[in-house]
Design a protein around this nucleic acid. Sequence first.
DNA 1: TATGAATGAGCCTTCATTCAT
DNA 2: TATGAATGAAGGCTCATTCAT
Lengths: 194, 194, 194, 194
Amino acid sequence: MKRKIMETGILLFDKNGFKSTSVQDIVQELGVTKGTFYYYFSSKEELLKEIHLLYIESIIKQQEEIMNNPFYDFAKKLHEIILMQISTIRIELRSARIFTREMRHLSRDNFLEIKEKRSAFRHNVQKLIEEGITQGILQKGRADIITMAILGMTNWSYYWFSPEGEVPEEKVADIFLDLILNGISNDSVYTPNI
Amino acid sequence: MKRKIMETGILLFDKNGFKSTSVQDIVQELGVTKGTFYYYFSSKEELLKEIHLLYIESIIKQQEEIMNNPFYDFAKKLHEIILMQISTIRIELRSARIFTREMRHLSRDNFLEIKEKRSAFRHNVQKLIEEGITQGILQKGRADIITMAILGMTNWSYYWFSPEGEVPEEKVADIFLDLILNGISNDSVYTPNI
Amino acid sequence: MKRKIMETGILLFDKNGFKSTSVQDIVQELGVTKGTFYYYFSSKEELLKEIHLLYIESIIKQQEEIMNNPFYDFAKKLHEIILMQISTIRIELRSARIFTREMRHLSRDNFLEIKEKRSAFRHNVQKLIEEGITQGILQKGRADIITMAILGMTNWSYYWFSPEGEVPEEKVADIFLDLILNGISNDSVYTPNI
Amino acid sequence: MKRKIMETGILLFDKNGFKSTSVQDIVQELGVTKGTFYYYFSSKEELLKEIHLLYIESIIKQQEEIMNNPFYDFAKKLHEIILMQISTIRIELRSARIFTREMRHLSRDNFLEIKEKRSAFRHNVQKLIEEGITQGILQKGRADIITMAILGMTNWSYYWFSPEGEVPEEKVADIFLDLILNGISNDSVYTPNI
DNA sequence: TATGAATGAGCCTTCATTCAT
DNA sequence: TATGAATGAAGGCTCATTCAT
């Protein structure tokens, strides 16, 4: 039952937003009563928090498996991390969207707890970029801003990518990775602001 | 007064979200009463709609000025469009965030009206990419997905870029443009998935 | 309207208790809606607080007028204060009962504010007793416990005295005063615990 | 277990009131579940009723032992009854307070049952006063109102007397009895309202 | 142009109680 | 004897909106 409530919560929070989804909406969908909801969750916010935790802990775990894989070189790691995020869409699209949109509705304590894990995820990506620079594979540059550019691409994909569309997720990951590493210009002569 | 209501609405919708901001919150901030609000706006949603329109029409207008500037070549246009979006942060950060987060709270008709303009903006970027390809400046590829990657970078910047930070917006735009055109790898030999 | 809400609140809080009286009960009695209630009071507790304040400030004011009356001697003052409390029944019986029964439902801050005024009332009575002792009118003794005995008599009367009964309030006040000053035994020879 | 539930009920009903104490509060305090509660009591009200009965039957029994003691004269009886009530504080303070405050939450039938016993207690006191008058020990007067004055003193003591304070209960009983019999004025010449 | 009073629907949450196990 | 899951009614409170002035 708890799992069913979470699934329905994810569905409705994504569709209508946390604030616009009432506990009534959730239990009605499940054919149970409000009392049941509060038997499993102490508040609507707790449900939101558990949804956040489930998601962030899942992708942090995947990320760490990639980072710690001794058979992966730098490029493979970057590719896998980007692919992982895009692939996540297929099974956790809704959670991912809730994650980026509804975090502000967590209370201060829960907010900070989630924010910390979110930062950890970002730092791991940034660390990877910095390693690439150290190894001479990447150009020197602002690793922090590059990181944000990459996360921007992947996070934004939750709002347009459709697993049912004509382009499969692997293809999107390839395009992203190629863009990030090589750019899209035909030669390398262009220098901005000249 | 109408302008002041809009400004306060932007402030609060951004800070707390559309659903979590009550008409009471807005008028209280201004020291007027609810009656006043409803004299200028027929509903809370209408305020949201006007905020959306003000923003999207402003950036569409800027975009078109760039696109139609006969003195700009392709690269300059791309640079200017990216810079324009980042620069917007300084004066319209809040509107931009509301734009990406609260659109779902518009009623069907208003939603469609805004969505159309939003698509127009995206299509203009995509058209620019396609021109670049046609002109041989860019490599052949999925212009649509490249467009989403670019929009992802810029839209995401609303959630981390701070005009008060150490990196100025022009620098961010340069980094983004360089990433998009040339990538970040040290050479061009890398080919993913081989 | 605010006054009407207070009157109804006094009626129902006395009859059924603060906790057992819902805001719905109050507004239903008045034929208005809950919104109206919350237009005048920020919470149910605030109504309770205002009821407390109205009562305690009223009797403190009366008490001070008696205490400061230069034409009253000690005995007259004591008589008037006891009579005042009994007389209050006729118009503020319900408030008086709420006062002694529902105070615990005030939040900490409101509780302390009311408690302070309540103590002031008690201290004034005790001060009067101490004056009587100093002036040689009363026997020496524990003024504090005597005070509690007197307050017990008068406060308890709220639970049995009926203004419609055969004994008028002045008569009750006389009996109380006589009991306090002279006791009920036929002579003064009795000494307890011998 | 039943006894433990009653003890906890007494504790919490006194501390927070009947209405503000949930069955959940009680079983939580005991580390058991709601099912257990309903195994021993058919409803929350039944617990309240048993608490009332336990208390009132206990003090009625004590009262009757005093009244029927052939070695006690009138004054001794009055003294013992007052002392008994004050002494009760030490072991049954909470029950006594619940008794005077929560009776209204009993259903009609239970209410009447308890009320009858309560009246019996009061009538016994009044009968004692009347006997004193008949025997010429007390002045003629309204025995009913005198009774209420005495009960007021003793009942009120539940709200201020502390067994840990500097004045022991025997001393309080002595002061009360002396006040009732002899009054507190230094002579007997005072006549009110002249 | 602006106010202030009122509405009514809906929201989150609590809680006494039931019942199969 | 005791548990754990579930119910359903009610409670306090919020809020977008209306309307006479």
